[in-house]
Design a protein around this nucleic acid. Structure first.
Lengths: 142, 142
DNA sequence: ACTTTATTGTTCATAGTTGAACATTATTGG
DNA sequence: CCAATAATGTTCAACTATGAACAATAAAGT
């Protein structure tokens, strides 16, 4: 199953190349599309990556004119993120590609199953995130 | 869903640390466990990684006494891979950890669903591998 | 037999991700 | 008010994975 995800990432990467972006950029764009005004830290948490990663990617996307980073008025530490018009356009194109790929993947799976699976996945995510805080010896006890 | 896989990899990595190995090593061990005598190239294909990757990891595992690499008699290019006794022991422990993790993940999902999902995943994999050979303009035609 | 093409494994330069250390700013406790 | 603690974003060194270039060997075409 991990293999399938790996392959899907590769396929996605290959098709996103037409737009000159990569999966990490898409992740960022999509999240900003829905949660405009989010901070770098919040974005990193949503994507499950380190904030240093954001510090590498975001300035580069800003230079490319896809996003904007404006300092928060109340808290001078945080930078709030916004899509530019160009960024929004690109995001829509990229999401088209992505959904096309997903459709192709799931074409022969009934819809209810997909939804069931995603709810399972979400539960798994919350479960794992909880574990992350407790190093849990329970598995290696004996 | 990609996030769930990512998190599962991280959890697995954290628990495998007790055995001083990482997910890539586990992948190798498990595959050798079932397909002893495989070549480096075949192993790389199964794991969907480049063969250069194998050239990095395998010598290191050989030095650690987990595997053995013996040259094929008929074809002097290939190195065939075998688990040592220590490697087999370690593999069993690691698989225990892995299956425990998976069980915890899927504890609240009915078994038939899991199986359905894996068959879907396998179909997806073969589908994507086929795509890989045809760059397919079909998605970006318009 | 011999040239060409393909395959296997290795090496190396490259790119992506991470965690630790740091500076800056907020928050909390005395 | 001030010290201690925490949070945000940046930088940097380390690690991983990759693809291209390469040497050795095999297979195919002539």
């Amino acid at each position: 199953m991990a293999r399938a995800c790996q392959l899907m990432q590769q396929s996605l990467a290959r098709e996103l190349a037409y737009l000159d972006i990569k999966p990490p950029h898409l992740d960022i764009l999509v999240n900003l599309f829905r949660f405009e005004g989010i901070s770098q830290q919040e974005l990193a948490r949503k994507l499950l990556v380190g904030r240093s990663n954001m510090s590498m990617l975001l300035p580069q996307m800003e230079k490319r004119g896809l996003i904007e980073r404006r300092g928060d008025k109340q808290d001078k530490r945080v930078l709030r993120l916004y899509l530019t018009e160009a960024g929004r356009r690109l995001t829509r194109e990229a999401m088209t590609i992505q959904t096309a790929l997903i459709d192709r993947m799931m074409s022969d799976a009934p819809i209810e199953e997909c939804e069931l699976m995603t709810t399972h996945m979400e539960r798994v995510i919350t479960l794992l995130l909880k574990d992350e805080r407790e190093p849990l010896e329970t598995v290696v006890d004996q």
